[in-house]
C-alpha cells in the first residue's frame, strides 16, 4: 500500500482536501481534525484493509514530524492509534524505524486490534525477541496469524519452541491452540 493509492481511493472527499489545507496553514489544527476524520470520512472500507477514516488519517500524517505523530498517538483513542500504526510503513519520516516505540506501546495493550496492527509490515523494525513475543501474544489472544506480516520468512526455531510450549500447555489443560498456529508449528516440526 502507498499513500498515493489511499489518496486515489478518497478522491472527491472535500472534507479531507479542506483539512489538509487547514493543517498546512495552521499545524495546531491537526489534533482536532485527526480526531474527527473517522466520523467525517466514514468507516466503510475503501481499499482492502483500509476504511475511509483510516486512509484519511494516514494522509493527514504525511509531512508531519515524528514528535507530532508520537503526540497524536499518545493522545489518540483506540481508532486513532490503530490508524497511526497502520500508516507507519507508508510515512517517509518513519522509514528508519523511529516509530518502534509506538509498536511497543501497542504490544503492551490488551486490545487485539492494536496488537495485530503492531505486527503488520512495520514490525520489520522490531528486534527478534520482541517480534516473537508479539507473535505468541497474537496466538494467545486468538487473533488470526494472517495479521502477522512476513510470518513464514521470519519464523525461526526459537519461535517454534515457544509455540510448542504453548501447545503443550494448552493440551495439558484440554484446550486447543488455533489451527493456523498448529499449522505453523507443524511446518517447523515436519
Amino acid at each position: 500500500m502507498k499513500l498515493d493509492e489511499l489518496r486515489a481511493a478518497l478522491a472527491g472527499h472535500e472534507w479531507l482536501a479542506e483539512a489538509e489545507v487547514r493543517v498546512k496553514a495552521d499545524p495546531a489544527a491537526l489534533p482536532s481534525l485527526f480526531a474527527r476524520a473517522d466520523r467525517k470520512l466514514g468507516r466503510d472500507e475503501v481499499v482492502p484493509g483500509w476504511t475511509a477514516g483510516q486512509a484519511g488519517r494516514a494522509l493527514l500524517l504525511k509531512d508531519q514530524d515524528q514528535e507530532q505523530i508520537r503526540q497524536l498517538y499518545d493522545h489518540g483513542d483506540a481508532a486513532e492509534k490503530l490508524a497511526i500504526l497502520k500508516a507507519l510503513p507508508l510515512l517517509d519520516t518513519e522509514r528508519e524505524g523511529a516509530g518502534v516505540p509506538l509498536l511497543l506501546d501497542a504490544l503492551r495493550t490488551n486490545d487485539t486490534r492494536l496488537v495485530a496492527a503492531a505486527l503488520g509490515p512495520y514490525a520489520e523494525h522490531l528486534d527478534a525477541a520482541t517480534w516473537r513475543q508479539g507473535v505468541i501474544k497474537v496466538v494467545f489472544m486468538g487473533v488470526p496469524l494472517a495479521a502477522v506480516a512476513d510470518l513464514d520468512e521470519r519464523a525461526d526455531a526459537e519461535l517454534a519452541t515457544m509455540l510448542r510450549s504453548l501447545a503443550d500447555e494448552r493440551a495439558a489443560a484440554g484446550r486447543d491452540m488455533s489451527a493456523d498456529a498448529i499449522a505453523l508449528l507443524n511446518r517447523w516440526e515436519a
Binding site: N110, T112, R113, A116, K137, F140, M141, G142, V143, P144
Partner: peptide, 13 residues
C-alpha cells in the same frame, strides 16, 4: 466480529 474470542474471553494475557 473478526476478533471475537479475544484475550478477555480467554482469560487475559
Amino acid at each position: 466480529a473478526t476478533f471475537e474470542g479475544s484475550s478477555i474471553l480467554r482469560g487475559g494475557s
